[in-house]
Design a protein around this nucleic acid. Structure first.
Lengths: 217, 217
DNA sequence: TAGATTGTTAATCGATTAACAATC
DNA sequence: TAGATTGTTAATCGATTAACAATC
């Protein structure tokens, strides 16, 4: 399968398609046209057909797309069937919330261990995931296959921990610290969850709307 | 101030500029050129100048931009000085983590109340924010100015609670439930934090890289 | 078969980049 | 002043939309 680099915009839409298809499945819909799917997601039918055709021919003329089949295609494109393994670093509030509430396995990822520095946490287990000492990080990573590191440490620890992860051969980080990890020398993949960026965007749009309403008067 | 709709791409970059400028301030840098800023953010100088000039003339030829002045301009554009007020609905793991750890005030937002259904939580207070009963939601919203609702309820509660919020006149929701709120009739502003979408994008890029490495052999 | 809907090519639109005169 | 760097216009590039022949 050789396709010249798919654009980031397309990649960001794929998980939305997946969620919508799961939702459709649950409601017992098992066939959908690009027109209807577009309606439900606020996208044009053209765009949807372009997006899918980037990866293959998943539809059928005159019929549309099979919901379950399309779902599996997209799951495969996203790597959900590759059995990726993750570890989580930093069992604070957000780390704890992820371990307890975020269903990694729903998205094809196995959370195999968590790490923290706090002695009172080490040895305990949450939702089936054991917390180990940060001292064991390197040895654990050398002995177990880990594809993704979930970074939920405090701001100050973000860069030093990242160094250690990279040194241990990790090449994908799911970053919840509000620190810019992107840019450094290494070619590690970084995916950021920046709460503040998200809130500020919302704040902008609220302001824009207020200004419009003000202007209308 | 009349500017024909600024594109979403630009808006999404503004919070990144803000963070970088704060970081520069802390390191004692108080002047920067579009060239250097571009280097640090992985953007072209052109793009940076285009982005800023969308909102005014913040720089000075031959000199560059004053870090603190530019920071204040961007903060203003994002509405950080408007004193927006927020309430949080659903004090589960993620809601609790936000109350305790996310510094709303750093981004110009005041978290004025939290709501939950659990009797054992009602009346308690976290990090200065009191938890009220969901029964009080409507009366609270009618008596207090609230601009943003932070939605951290379980999946099942997402839609019914959203209905109630909209009925009470809320027109901005910061959505942490993995439910698609966008699209319905109402013109409420929705900003999503979709953990799963983010993880799946990362999973895609990991897969892409593996495939490339495979192909190289 | 006739109607519907795909996959894909061509046209449009918008965003990014390059270039440069203005000017601090 | 001379050098540096902006703000902005023009050129390029890429992404979205439209159109339509292919076909189920």
């Amino acid at each position: 399968m050789k396709h010249s680099k798919v654009s980031n915009n397309v990649i960001r839409r794929l998980p939305r398609y997946l969620r919508k298809l799961d939702e459709l499945s649950e409601s017992g819909v098992n066939r959908i046209s690009s027109f209807d799917l577009g309606q439900q997601l606020g996208l044009t039918p053209s765009q949807i057909r372009q997006d899918f055709s980037r990866f293959g021919e998943f539809g059928q003329q005159g019929y549309g797309y099979s919901v379950p089949a399309l779902r599996e295609h997209i799951a495969g494109i996203l790597g959900m069937d590759r059995g990726y393994r993750a570890v989580l670093i930093g069992v604070g509030h957000i780390g704890h919330a992820l371990i307890d509430n975020f269903c990694f396995s729903d998205w094809g990822v196995k959370l195999s261990a968590a790490f923290d520095v706090k002695p009172e946490l080490i040895g305990s287990s949450f939702n089936g995931t054991a917390v180990r000492s940060m001292d064991e990080l390197e040895s654990y990573l050398s002995e177990n296959p880990v594809d993704i590191a979930v970074l939920t440490v405090p701001k100050d620890a973000a860069l030093p921990v990242t160094e250690r992860l990279i040194a241990s051969g990790i090449n994908a980080i799911w970053n919840f610290t509000n620190v810019e990890l992107t840019g450094p020398d290494s070619d590690v993949l970084v995916e950021n969850i920046h709460f503040s960026d998200s809130l500020l965007s919302l704040s902008y749009y609220v302001s824009e709307r207020r200004d419009e309403q003000q202007a209308d008067k």
